[in-house]
């Protein structure tokens, strides 16, 4: 009797136990081949000497390279300047769209266009603006504000170089933050804002006490994505300045392609990975809702 009763109970979970693995298998294989294997290879390469023995020489070489420190500082500087500006701009643009202006739909698409432009293309577009004989200098000379134009991207002008990269990055990547924030605002029921209006809140108070707190989850997503992507900024700076304004990913490229040293290139890549993971954890911790269970 007991065996008869037990059988169907045991059979059910067993059937469920195998089939999910079959369904997961294709994506697992793909992930292992395209991500897992290169990742392992990269980590191994960073710690291996040419014969395959364990070594820290690659790291010593990397840390001894003056370009590495400069690239690290430049990357962090770019994040610290660009991300907050993009966040403020995106929220501002969202509020403008939300106020339902004429041709609001058109504005939305125009502001979202940079999303569709590739990094390198964006870099080249801005190169035509900032080059010695670019649009900006032509304009300045035409207006009589400058005699021969300004060497924006010259090695001797690190400030204007940074400025050019910042402007190009803001133009290129604000639209992503904007799209995320717009989605967040549109998911918010209008009642909260209306309640705040009725209960005496001014426009600023409504933004500060109602809209922004309710937008927190969207802002968190935008911040994490934007910071990690900014860590990977490469093509825009490469197109504008070459190696005059080094960035971390640019260094990876430099070591791998020009210096033919995959081991040190892997070490740089691992530094970027560690920074990305660190930022994500930091944001998650910092932006967690005050009540552990979450008020929503």
């Amino acid at each position: 009797m007991t065996t008869v009763l037990e059988k169907p109970v045991r059979k059910q979970p067993q059937r469920l136990g195998i089939s999910p693995w079959w369904l997961l298998a294709p994506s697992t294989v793909l992930l292992v081949l395209l991500f897992g294997w290169p990742l392992v290879q990269g980590i191994l390469a960073a710690f291996q000497a040419e014969g395959g023995a364990f070594t820290l020489a690659n790291w010593e070489r990397l840390f001894g390279d003056p370009y590495f420190v400069e690239a690290l500082l430049n990357t962090l500087l770019l994040i610290v300047i660009v991300v907050p500006i993009q966040l403020v701009l995106a929220v501002g643009m969202t509020l403008l769209i939300q106020s339902k202006p004429k041709f609001g739909g058109l504005h939305f698409y125009v502001w979202a266009i940079p999303l569709a432009v590739s990094d390198l293309a964006a870099g080249l577009v801005w190169l035509t603006v900032f080059a010695d004989r670019g649009y900006l200098n032509s304009l300045l000379i035409g207006l009589g504000l400058s005699e021969n134009g300004i060497a924006w991207l010259n090695y001797d002008n690190p400030t204007t170089m940074l400025l050019a990269v910042v402007v190009a990055e803001i133009w290129r990547a604000t639209s992503m933050v904007f799209v995320i924030v717009v989605a967040g605002v549109q998911m918010m029921p209008p009642d909260y804002d209306e309640a705040a209006q009725v209960f005496g809140a001014s426009a600023w108070q409504r933004l500060w006490h109602v809209t922004l707190p309710l937008l927190k989850p969207s802002l968190q997503v935008a911040l994490i994505l934007r910071t990690i992507l900014a860590l990977q900024a490469f093509a825009v700076a490469q197109a504008l300045t070459g190696r005059n304004f080094p960035l971390l990913v640019g260094e990876t490229y430099q070591w791998y392609v020009n210096l033919q040293n995959p081991a040190v290139a892997s070490a740089v890549a691992l530094v970027i990975l560690a920074l990305s993971l660190g930022t994500a954890v930091l944001y998650m911790r910092a932006l967690r809702q005050p009540s552990a269970g979450g008020p929503r």
Binding site: P189, A195, P213, K216, R296
Partner: peptide, 9 residues
């Protein structure tokens, strides 16, 4: 309000 609109945060 019909939905109460009590601020969740």
């Amino acid at each position: 309000f019909q939905s109460y609109a009590v601020f969740p945060h």
